[in-house]
Amino acid sequence: MQSRASERRIPVAAIERVEVKGPKGRRLVVVLTAPEAGDRESLTVYSRSAPGVLALAHTLRQSLPIRDETQPRADGALLVTRVPVAKPATDWRRVALRCSVSLYLLAAAAMLIRGVSGAAEWYVALACWLIGIVAVPLRHGVRAGWEMARETWRLRTCGVLVEGRKLYSGTYEFTDIEGRARQLTDAYESAEQVQILYDPTAAEQVAQVGPRTAGTLAFAALVCLLSLAATVTLAAIGVAGPLAVLDVLPVGL
């Protein structure tokens, strides 16, 4: 049983019986064993799924040991252990995304209010705001270019060159330095045997056909820089829209 602060682990030996309660059968009650029948503690689990509660109750009942009524019981509450739940690390990327979306929605509301109130040329600010939204998909180009450049640089500095054999069209098999067989797909190659450069230190497979990396590295850097410049420019245009609404910048941008 898990909550935000802790997790309670209940061994089957500590359970006296399992009951399904509630008007719709969505409450599972776990009654713990105790030396005296009147001292038994119960724990309750709530669920939105009544069939799920019934299935769990059925499984637990099948797992319970068979006890006589006169058989002495241990205190089941002492067998229940509590383990603190570790708080997950803050996902700053998600926080930044939520803040950005909130700011964009506030800016849209401000522009709509200015438009309804009859402010002159408010549509110019709205156009800037809409253009700035294009920066969101363009940031994926920045990330893709950066990842390509990083992988290519790792191949350039840590790569190992091995022989690759053609399996079928565009797919080659090679053996790494640990003797494991791997496959690489390259739709632009058709030769029976090629040289494959791969990084043995990478957690995921990073490989390419051919030993040359200068061209790929230059292309990745170009994609990253162009996408970054376009993203920054569009983001600046998008920010200029709300600033124009607030009369920080002139509307006639």
Rank of each mutant, 00 (worst) to 15 (best):
G52K: 12
V45P: 00
L105N: 01
S100F: 13
A57M: 08
L138A: 11
A149P: 03
S42A: 15
A108Q: 04
S42W: 00
G52E: 13
G141N: 10
A86W: 00
I133V: 15
A37E: 14
E121Y: 07
R73V: 01
A55M: 07
P137W: 10
H140K: 13
Q71H: 04
A110Y: 08
A107I: 03
A86T: 08
V83K: 11
I113W: 13
V80W: 01
T33F: 02
L130W: 09
W92M: 09
A127D: 02
L126P: 01
S42R: 12
L112E: 02
R40K: 12
V142R: 10
Q62F: 01
A107R: 05
L130N: 07
V136W: 11
R67M: 05
R94I: 06
L32P: 01
T44M: 05
R61M: 05
T59F: 03
L28P: 05
P88V: 03
S117C: 06
L64F: 06
R94A: 15
P51L: 13
A108P: 01
P137Y: 09
K87G: 02
P51G: 13
A74S: 08
A34M: 03
V53T: 10
Q71E: 15
G115I: 09
A125D: 04
V83H: 11
A127T: 11
E69S: 07
P72L: 06
A89C: 00
A135D: 06
A149F: 12
W129P: 00
T81S: 15
V80K: 03
G38R: 08
L78C: 01
W122A: 14
A107M: 06
L32R: 07
C99V: 15
S100Q: 13
E41P: 00
W92F: 13
H58V: 02
W122S: 12
L97H: 11
H58G: 14
V80T: 07
E36I: 03
L56C: 07
G118P: 05
W122C: 02
A57W: 08
L78I: 00
L32F: 12
G132A: 06
G76H: 02
Q62C: 02
A149V: 04
W129M: 14
D91M: 05
R48Q: 10
W146G: 11
V142N: 08
R61Q: 12
A89W: 04
G76L: 01
W129Q: 14
E69C: 00
D75I: 00
C128E: 04
C128Q: 05
R82I: 07
W122Q: 10
